[in-house]
């Protein structure tokens, strides 16, 4: 487990948990939760500056971009064009190429629109972006995205913000087996055991936001997720025992009085 670093786009991280920075009460809570999670990569959104009130606190004042790798996302984009435009701005604002692409297809399910996602990925990769991509749990689509040159494949475990846990372990497993780039479960994690399940399946990492931000105590949950991801990773390497249909005593029966 030593030197078991998460590598993506020529960068290396000791943490395999990526956290979102939305939905928190305030920036103080955001910073404390991120700290407790141990995450080294945080997702951020790109939005218009409030030009009427420029003195509003900014995220960068609470989460130092030199300490954390900012992963700009395209949350809220429903077309390839909007996503591309957003990430071009993000690159100019931040000065780095690593981005998270997410093109949504439906307001109710927030399920990804894979046609638009493929199109956007193609354009962005031509422009030298390192694209981590949110996608459906379809192994064929995952392969297409990898073939295009995406640097990480991030299928949903369940709908965004649902907290339902990993609904599709078979699909996630297939995607992991075939992939030559990191696979992360992005969306659907509700509590620590869900994160551990993802890691036990062999995922390279987990991305979450709501599970931490909407916990009763977000900072405590951030700590729990940190441990769960590590525990799941350790269990994956340890190799679980085979499942059996009947009991198998742990104490020897020989010498029984």
């Amino acid at each position: 487990m030593n030197n078991d670093n998460f590598k993506v786009a020529d960068m290396s991280f000791s943490s395999r948990l990526i956290v979102g920075t939305g939905k928190y009460k305030d920036f103080e809570e955001t910073a404390l939760a991120v700290e407790a999670s141990g995450a080294q990569i945080v997702t951020v959104a790109v939005r218009r500056v409030n030009v009427m009130d420029p003195n509003q606190p900014m995220l960068v004042d609470y989460l130092d971009p030199k300490k954390y790798t900012y992963l700009p996302n395209t949350a809220g984009c429903f077309t390839a064009d909007d996503a591309i435009r957003t990430l071009r701005l993000a690159r100019e604002a931040g000065g780095w190429n690593l981005v998270k692409l997410e093109v949504l297809g439906d307001q109710k399910t927030l399920y990804p629109n894979m046609v638009e996602t493929l199109h956007a990925a193609e354009v962005l990769i031509k422009e030298n972006f390192d694209v981590m991509v949110y996608c459906s749990d379809d192994p064929i689509m995952a392969q297409r995205l990898e073939d295009l040159g995406c640097c990480a494949i991030m299928p949903l475990g369940a709908p965004i913000g649902s907290g339902l846990g990993i609904q599709n372990p078979v699909q996630i497993r297939l995607i992991i087996e075939q992939a030559n780039v990191p696979v992360l479960v992005d969306a659907g994690v509700g509590t620590a055991s869900d994160a551990a399940v993802a890691m036990e399946l062999g995922c390279d990492g987990v991305l979450m936001n709501t599970a931490i931000a909407e916990a009763k105590d977000p900072i405590a949950m951030a700590r729990a997720m940190n441990l769960a991801v590590q525990a799941g990773r350790a269990a994956y390497f340890a190799g679980r025992m085979p499942k059996k249909l009947y009991a198998d005593p742990s104490s020897p029966l020989a010498g029984l009085i």
Binding site: A45, V46, R48, Y70, M208, A213
Partner: peptide, 13 residues
């Protein structure tokens, strides 16, 4: 002109 910056964000809006 559009002037943007990074804000807290995970998924969706």
């Amino acid at each position: 002109l559009e002037i943007v910056h990074f804000i807290g964000g995970g998924k969706t809006i």
